[in-house]
Structures are given as C-alpha cells and as structure tokens.
Design a protein around this nucleic acid. Structure first.
Length: 139
DNA sequence: GCCAACGTTGGC
DNA sequence: GCCAACGTTGGC
C-alpha cells in the first residue's frame, strides 16, 4: 500500500463534503496538472491519503482511501485528464497544521513543504506514521 | 493583497 | 528547442 496527500480549498471541496459522500466516495476531479495526474495513475485501490485543506486552514484534517483507480475525469472531455475516486476514512482528532509539519525535522522532506503548489503528492510510510501520530489517527 | 514558485503557451 | 510572457496557486 502506498500513501498520498490530496489538497483542496475547503471553500471548493472540503472534508465535510467528502464525509457527506460516505462510502460511495467521490471523484477527485478537476486536476489539470501532469505531475498530479501521473501520481493518480500510480494509485491502487486500497491506497490511503491525507486530506489537506489549503488556503486559510493549511492543515491535514483526515484520511481517505482510494476506492477506484485512474479513469477519465468526468468534468472535462479532454482525454488527457484523469482522476481517482476516494472516500473519507477517519477525521483527525487534532488537525496537523503546516506550521506543525514544518516544525518537525522528520517531516522536512515532505512534498507539501518542498513544493507547496502540487495538489496531489506522494507521502512516505514514515511521514504517514508521524503525521498520523500527531493527528491522533489510527492510520 | 502581495509575491514567489511553478507550469503553460507561443513566438522565434 | 529556447525563453519571455503570462496565468495560477498557495503561503504569508
């Protein structure tokens, strides 16, 4: 199993929206960036990811599971763009803020820190463990 | 609201 | 194929 991070502006699509979809999940659509798309192509059903709120909040607020591999993005006819489906798994007891992440030397190599603009990014097993611990998530 | 970082586009 | 111009994102 691999680990990922999905970034979204909560005013557009937030954790509460994701939770409301329940086990049916939702497409992670709208990605128009090749790097992000390529990571989604690498995803397998059962992979897990952090759900991150950008902009004002800047925090990991929960975990999600990939429930469908890459398929065409229904919000465009452009065949270049694909997306996966994800469902909410567990809400963070404590949101792990970007500030907390930057303050922890074990997380200094996270893509979130290194390339803040990438909206879909890989997370290492170690980073996953550390952030889950900080968030009070079972992982 | 500003600006740095990054990606994309288009002229050459 | 290079690079300048432009648009977008996201942290501050």
């Amino acid at each position: 199993m691999r680990f990922w991070l999905f970034k979204s502006e909560p005013s557009v699509w937030g954790w509460s929206d994701q939770l409301a979809r329940g086990d049916a999940g939702e497409e992670w659509d709208g990605v128009r960036n090749y790097q992000a798309r390529n990571f989604m192509r690498e995803m397998a059903v059962g992979d897990r990811g952090f759900f991150y709120h950008s902009q004002k909040e800047k925090a990991v607020v929960g975990t999600v599971e990939v429930i469908a591999g890459a398929h065409p993005d229904s919000t465009t006819d452009d065949p270049r763009w694909e997306c996966v489906d994800i469902k909410a798994l567990e809400a963070a007891q404590v949101p792990v803020t970007l500030e907390m992440i930057k303050a922890d030397p074990r997380l200094s190599e996270m893509v979130l820190v290194r390339n803040s603009r990438l909206s879909v990014q890989p997370v290492t097993a170690e980073e996953w463990r550390v952030v889950c611990e900080m968030a009070g998530l079972s992982g």
